[in-house]
Design a protein around this nucleic acid. Sequence first.
DNA 1: ATGTAGGCGCTACGCCGACAA
DNA 2: TTGTCGGCGTAGCGCCTACAT
Lengths: 400, 400
Amino acid sequence: SHTKSGSAPGYSPPSLSTEQDRRCLNSELWHACAGPLVSLPSVSSRVVYFPQGHTEQVAASTQKELDSHIPNYPNLPSWLICLLDNVTLHADLETDEVYAQMTLIPLPTSQQKNALLAQDLPKPNRQPTDYFCKTLTASDTSTHGGFSVPRRAAEKVFPPLDFSQQPPAQELIARDLHDQEWHFRHIYRGQPRRHLLTTGWSVFVSAKRLQAGDCVLFIRDDKGQLLLGIRRANRQQMIMPSSVLSSDSMHIGVLAAANHAAATNSRFTIFYNPRQSPSEFVIPVAKYHKAINTQVSVGMRFRMVFETEESSVRRYMGTITGIGDLDPIRWPKSDWRSLKVGWDESTAGERQQRVSIWDIEPLPAPFLLCPPPLAFRSKRTCGSRGKVHESGNMFWNDNM
Amino acid sequence: SHTKSGSAPGYSPPSLSTEQDRRCLNSELWHACAGPLVSLPSVSSRVVYFPQGHTEQVAASTQKELDSHIPNYPNLPSWLICLLDNVTLHADLETDEVYAQMTLIPLPTSQQKNALLAQDLPKPNRQPTDYFCKTLTASDTSTHGGFSVPRRAAEKVFPPLDFSQQPPAQELIARDLHDQEWHFRHIYRGQPRRHLLTTGWSVFVSAKRLQAGDCVLFIRDDKGQLLLGIRRANRQQMIMPSSVLSSDSMHIGVLAAANHAAATNSRFTIFYNPRQSPSEFVIPVAKYHKAINTQVSVGMRFRMVFETEESSVRRYMGTITGIGDLDPIRWPKSDWRSLKVGWDESTAGERQQRVSIWDIEPLPAPFLLCPPPLAFRSKRTCGSRGKVHESGNMFWNDNM
DNA sequence: ATGTAGGCGCTACGCCGACAA
DNA sequence: TTGTCGGCGTAGCGCCTACAT
């Protein structure tokens, strides 16, 4: 075979089971790759599904906006309370992009409104503790050398080296989302001393087609096994030209599938691409319930959580500048992105002009004049594109 | 950058226009890559669209069969006469897989039956004359050497060498479907003498991720320019796990889009993947008309054209063993694969058990006992997986 | 006529410290 | 602490012919 990855020394052949078959890949690793803001509702809980948000994801994937001459489904409401029947975690075999498959069962119309009332707020799901994430430098991805491991990262997640050796070195074996093994030589050398991954690293870079700016992350799981994953930089927009279905048919498929499932109270299946989708479109009922019972008005101040370039999370301040339908024709009185907002900071070009009420943390009173202390930002942690996300509501009354 | 293809010498950067923008890629090259059996109806002609065939293509792409709990569209007939409003040729940017985008406008219900009557049989479309196609050997794809060009192929499509040089050599420049330039050193040397592509070849193999068994083809177009394309071996099944839409939603999208277009006489868009789809599902009306007016009965003998592994085309003999609906519940009285057939040759494992009437060439009488002379099969021409295709009807009464 | 292998030059991959930043 | 570089040894890429089929 001509390609390196097939016969390269650091590479072990994948297990024969296809991605489709393997029901459950490592959840800890999946969430680490998805990023700190992504949390999935738990199985058997009730969720609110927003067809509008789903079509937004399709539009983002196909790079085509919703066309106007697509049929309307008058019986399909803008939100649908569903039982979350199943969730499976997946990763694209080509790109390692993470996504989740969810099976939803719409509740009967008679139960839709009642279902909003009783449900606990879900526990926010947590990033792994023993993990690190580094944005790759030009040196890391060049063919000239290996990978420079941040000192604290190596000490935290790699097995300790035997420093009686000169130089201290060991072989690391890490598994990715597809359960493929990758072998690396881990050595501590140089003047001044540093941790490096040498042999095996370039094979990994080639196989995953990593570039400077992409992130690599290592986890030590509870059994002491080493896991690794990647997060690609924002710029790689992962367009899927599909060549299977036209974007129009995809949009119609989303709506018709939801409509049919709602009409017959039957199961339907969606994919959620955390790093592709502009916003979550399947959210816990309790979150939605709490949000729609919160008073919002034009002029109200709020905060919202984003995933930043350099750091994990960051809150931005803004003001509600308008309240109204995003699409008055097709989705009248929808709560999806019903708030028009302005952002305090001038670097707000990337942030949405419209958000949904459950995306924000309203600030009760405008008596605050100085910005809140910034959350700790560790250097060289994994960056990603900014995107909207829930906050978990635990910050409404914190130290301000 | 770490990957070779980015900075390799034989590679020229692609033009900035994306595939979506470029309306028309080279038709001759596209058809050469699609194979000798693929012919597209012409723009502004009338065609018959089969939703069943379309869902078959989706099933083949997603590797998931049509699920039973998908909604029925009682108003959507099993065939739909449409105006072929537009056809654009495309090739996947990652894999170079060819596909066609067609925009269809269903005729009003009142005109559906009349439209069958008057229309000429389309002229079958032709493979380029000055072209060759070679299945790559292990040596061709190994890193050890270059590409061995079959003698006749080189003499037919490459510019003539200056044999006064020792050894005779020249630089070839060929463009692929994406209009990217590839540079090769073409040399005539060795004992015995032979044509070889050396410098630049391995870059091409890497970039296209070619393996032994894949085909490469060269064309000299009417302006004397060199074009090149690839056809991947069957085994690479090009699954597109999509991660955008569930296969159920895709199937629903296909049906709902056709249904809506038929109800409103509005445009809809489909993709046809010649090498993915089990059968054509958009065919000229004249072909359909001729077929449904042909008498067929159980026991009738017929021939059908296939694309073979080693050769371009080959006809196989068979007998009709049954006539009836493929899916009596969802598509009663449909002509799609309404014939059950048996094949003469024992190697018939790969061939369909069910075909449509327009796929076959009925033989008027069973007085023939010896098989027809096999069509000429040139050695080392490009192979491909066997698939059904029209024959153009010109063989009904030929030399048997 | 063309697939494969041995021979062998030479590129560039990749391991090392030396420097900064 | 860690990104980049110059320095090198060497694996393997890739050009050649010989030989077999």
